[in-house]
């Protein structure tokens, strides 16, 4: 797979400065999303995946500061764009977003149509500039586009969806509607933030299949943020594992899951109930970003840690599509 990189993040460091000092949320995140690719970003709570997602969308809270690094979208650094540019060209337009909880994402008192049209008003549809006055003609085109998208995500009775209220849809259908909304502006990337976590297993499987089909059909790249290696195994081409704000391992989903190289990845996969053998968990707790350990942040919990692990963060060295940030990883 030697496709061009659509989104590339180099050495991103983000800190939050508050009453209690500097909290280093992201420390050297590396990421590369190729065109048409589905990349999984996996990590447990506190690994910084939601901050990473906000950084890409330009929605970091006021208290957060980008210490260093760049987010390149088609070669252009998103971090140097103005707020207005982010809103007009990137967020919702080139980068669509699918939120985590389809039950909370809708306002229950408005119809689905009213809410989706509002989104399209700001993100636009292919061939049109977003924003501005909504003419009757424009509204008609938007409706048609949404209905087309509802068909693409296989919601029954796509024509009537816009006039119904959110509570008339199940969780799985709501998630489909949100995906349709994210797709309507014809984005090049879709950020999906744990889109299956709030759903039941059978629905989860349906959404995963849908995302896979849509990626093929529309050629859209998907950044799939999750904590679930099972979902990664079903959906993603490649996966990037994060721990406490650091990217620790990158590789194809198959390689990372079956032959993990970083001690954290390997310990995490051993925690999956499907894993054969005893479940033990990982000793200790994720370090607070306020007092992150120096060097490799996993070293206090690592079974094979050495003295030099706390000296400096091991660089993420790549070899044949695999990159690992660990002193034990020797690229052959």
């Amino acid at each position: 797979m030697t496709r061009e990189a659509l989104l590339k993040i180099n050495g991103l460091k983000v800190s939050v400065f508050g009453d209690e000092g500097e909290a280093s949320i992201l420390d050297h995140v590396e990421l590369e999303l190729k065109r048409g690719e589905i990349l999984g970003v996996v990590g447990e709570s506190g690994c910084g995946k939601s901050t990473l997602m906000r950084a890409i969308l330009g929605l970091l809270p006021q208290s957060a500061q980008i210490v260093s690094g760049e987010i390149l979208f088609r070669g252009e650094n998103l971090l140097s764009l103005s707020k207005a540019d982010m809103a007009r060209r990137i967020r919702g337009r080139a980068v669509g977003f699918v939120p985590q909880d389809p039950f909370l994402a809708f306002n229950p008192v408005f119809t689905v149509g009213k809410q989706m049209m509002e989104i399209l008003r700001w993100s636009g549809i292919p061939g049109h500039r977003p924003g501005g006055r909504l003419s009757r003609e424009r509204v008609r085109q938007h409706r048609a586009r949404l209905i087309e998208m509802f068909r693409a995500v296989q919601i029954p009775d796509a024509e009537t969806v816009l006039d119904r209220y959110p509570h008339q849809f199940s969780g799985g259908q709501r998630q489909r509607i949100l995906i349709a909304g994210a797709l309507a502006a014809q984005p090049e990337i879709i950020l999906a933030d744990e889109p299956t976590t709030a759903l039941d297993v059978t629905t989860q499987a349906q959404i995963l299949t849908l995302l896979n089909d849509l990626s093929d059909q529309f050629g859209v790249s998907i950044l799939f943020v999750t904590h679930d290696f099972g979902a990664v195994a079903q959906l993603c081409h490649r996966v990037s594992v994060m721990y406490a704000g650091q990217t620790v391992e990158v590789g194809t989903a198959d390689h990372v899951i079956n032959r993990p190289q970083h001690p954290y990845t390997s310990a995490l996969i051993d925690c999956h109930p499907d894993h054969i053998g005893d479940l033990v968990g990982i000793p200790g707790q994720v370090a607070s970003p306020l007092s992150a350990p120096p060097g490799c942040r996993f070293h206090p919990r690592c079974a094979v840690a050495q003295a030099r692990c706390s000296a400096a963060r091991p660089p993420l060295t790549a070899h044949e599509g695999r990159a690992v940030s660990c002193i034990h990883w020797a690229a052959p």
Binding site: Q204, L208, G230, D274
Partner: peptide
């Protein structure tokens, strides 16, 4: 068949 497993399934849904 729907449960997300570590091994990729051929007929997931």
């Amino acid at each position: 068949a729907s449960a997300p497993r570590l091994t990729k399934q051929t007929h997931p849904v």
